[in-house]
């Protein structure tokens, strides 16, 4: 049944978006502190633009914009001899070969496309936040460590790979953990993007009833449904907290931080 799949959808989204956002974030952070000025500018612009736009307006806006941008590019490539303007008043018209997904495609393609679009949006938005966290983490690796590395004759790339990246995680983890919690809580927004997630199903299953159903004899089961969801999210958050604590303890081992020092003394 679709309802059970929808839980899977949420978990899948988290599984895809988490690493993707981390990747985007890492790229953004590296770009933002790159030694070539245009790359640096690009990284900083990415971080500040995405972080500057208010939350759900971004989700509503960005998906349509991305969709239209993709279709526009395909339109330019596939139908070069199309003479009519694409924007006719309020309509957005591309030739049928450029439609994404194609009108002839089966239903599951539409769903997968919608899902991927949503995942990409999430990854870009959360990537900017992760980039900000990682950027801060890279800056808080003690300067002495970097200086020592360069004193040993490592070049910029070697310092980055062998000293900066292994050490920055311990500074980044609190921020990343926070972000992960936010990401978990942002998943109900999927239904705004038209993906059949758990919130969507809640509305769908109750769809035959209108707003006035309080006089039903069996009471309203949707309360229990949302209570279940609430518990699902709370449990998820709780488990994540515990796991993050574990990872933090593991990462602090041998690091030049207070937590690492405490572990060394305890051992």
């Amino acid at each position: 049944m679709g309802l059970y799949y929808s839980f899977g959808t949420v978990l899948l989204l988290l599984a895809i978006t988490g690493p993707a956002a981390l990747l985007f974030g890492f790229g953004g952070a590296v770009a933002a502190r790159h030694h070539i000025a245009p790359v640096r500018l690009f990284g900083k612009t990415y971080i500040s633009i995405v972080r500057g736009v208010p939350d759900i307006a971004f989700f509503l806006f960005f998906v349509i914009a991305l969709d239209q941008a993709l279709e526009w590019v395909r339109h330019k490539v596939k139908c070069p001899d199309w003479s009519e303007p694409i924007r006719q008043g309020n309509d957005f018209l591309v030739c049928s070969a450029a439609k994404l997904p194609l009108g002839t495609d089966p239903q599951w393609m539409h769903e997968v496309y919608g899902f991927l679009l949503a995942a990409l949006t999430f990854a870009i938005v959360f990537g900017a936040f992760a980039a900000n966290v990682l950027y801060g983490a890279m800056a808080s690796v003690p300067h002495g460590q970097i200086e020592t590395a360069s004193a040993y004759g490592m070049n910029r790339r070697q310092i980055f790979r062998r000293v900066l990246v292994p050490q920055m995680w311990v500074y980044a983890l609190p921020g990343l953990g926070n972000l992960w919690m936010v990401l978990i809580k942002a998943t109900p927004l999927l239904f705004l993007l038209g993906v059949e997630d758990i919130v969507y199903w809640a509305r769908e299953l109750g769809g035959s009833k209108t707003a006035r159903f309080s006089d039903y004899p069996h009471g309203d089961w949707r309360v229990w449904y949302f209570l279940g969801l609430l518990v699902f999210y709370l449990g998820f958050t709780r488990v994540s907290e515990k796991v993050l604590d574990r990872i933090m303890a593991r990462l602090s081992r041998g690091q030049a931080t207070l937590a690492g020092e405490a572990q060394r003394k305890a051992a």
Binding site: L189, V199, S214, G219, D220, R222, L229, Y233, T237
Partner: peptide, 25 residues
């Protein structure tokens, strides 16, 4: 604090709305 910080505001809205709906009855 855990209850309201640990769950999405979105779900809280939905839950509250349907809870009030059934309490209204």
């Amino acid at each position: 604090i855990f209850l309201f910080r640990g769950s999405p505001l979105f779900i809280q809205f939905f839950f509250a709305y349907f809870l009030f709906q059934s309490l209204k009855g």
